[in-house]
Design a protein around this nucleic acid. Structure first.
Lengths: 150, 150
DNA sequence: CAGATTTGTGCAATAAAATTGCATACCGGC
DNA sequence: GCCGGTATGCAATTTTATTGCACAAATCTG
């Protein structure tokens, strides 16, 4: 992981559709060397995967919400069971167990309020061990990046 | 946006490194038609961009935290000013203004506690208009996807 | 509803890009 | 300074993307 690898990773995190020759020129390597480095980073797992990011609004899911959850009964077993349920929901794009007075945090991508309504009925009804939950609807997205600074 | 477009988008959200011919076969189109569709989706902005996702731990930022922020003085101007500061921080990967008793939510990717410490001193010190902030450290990531269901 | 127009499709040729073999250059350890 | 392992550039090869074109399907229009 020298300076060239870092630069490659930074470039690929911003735009992975660039050609190898293009990247090679930018980092000052020959195409073949550049390609070998990228392959090495992939097989080492530093680069996890390459994906297309959609425009949420144009994909019909412009609404976003953050939900903090407090469980009724705590402990590893109960947390695991709750997260298993949450993870199955397509609207849940991020699910974490966290430290502090809250037990879990969920990030939701929703089509509309109706979907949120049915989602809550499903996940937060009786018998799901949720003591209380607090919803914050996203008003403005100031930043949302997948880039990990190196 | 017919069924074929949806399928293409779903496939590309999961793996954008597949060859066009491969995708074409899976959706039942010729490579040329398939390519034209993908290009159309890109120029229409449905596909925003293609990026490489790194393994956070292997990229040296395995620590994650969620911070809720309550501002001292509220209002559009103050919110904007705070978010402008937050957005500049490399550790901040997501920054939102939200509804509810909290004003903003930040998602952080950190190298270690030291970085968190200096981050807080910088962003939550006097004169930054932050009344109080609450930090939740991520213990377990149950789900973290960029896929928008279609 | 027929004709016209736009939009989408497959095929085949072409252009561009990725990939590989190989000889050489570089690096850390001794 | 020498050695094993690793990285590099070049050039040939293979794979992939891209384009022109003729035709088919869907949509519009009067």
């Amino acid at each position: 992981m020298d300076r060239i690898d870092s630069k490659l990773l930074t470039l690929l995190q911003e735009d992975a559709s660039r050609t190898n020759a293009d990247l090679a020129a930018e980092v000052g390597l020959s195409p073949s060397s550049c390609l070998r480095r990228i392959r090495r980073l992939k097989s080492a797992g530093v680069i996890d995967r390459v994906v297309a990011l959609l425009n949420p609004a144009k994909a019909g899911r412009g609404m976003k919400a953050i939900v903090t959850v407090e469980l009724e009964r705590h402990g590893e077993q109960h947390m695991r069971r709750f997260l298993e349920l949450a993870v199955m929901e397509p609207a849940v794009i991020q699910a974490y167990s966290v430290s502090g007075s809250t037990d879990a945090v969920l990030m939701l991508r929703l089509m509309d309020m109706d979907e949120f309504d049915t989602f809550c009925e499903r996940l937060f009804r009786d018998r799901t061990n949720v003591a209380r939950y607090y919803t914050m609807f996203v008003i403005r997205t100031a930043k949302e990046t997948t880039v990990i600074p190196l």
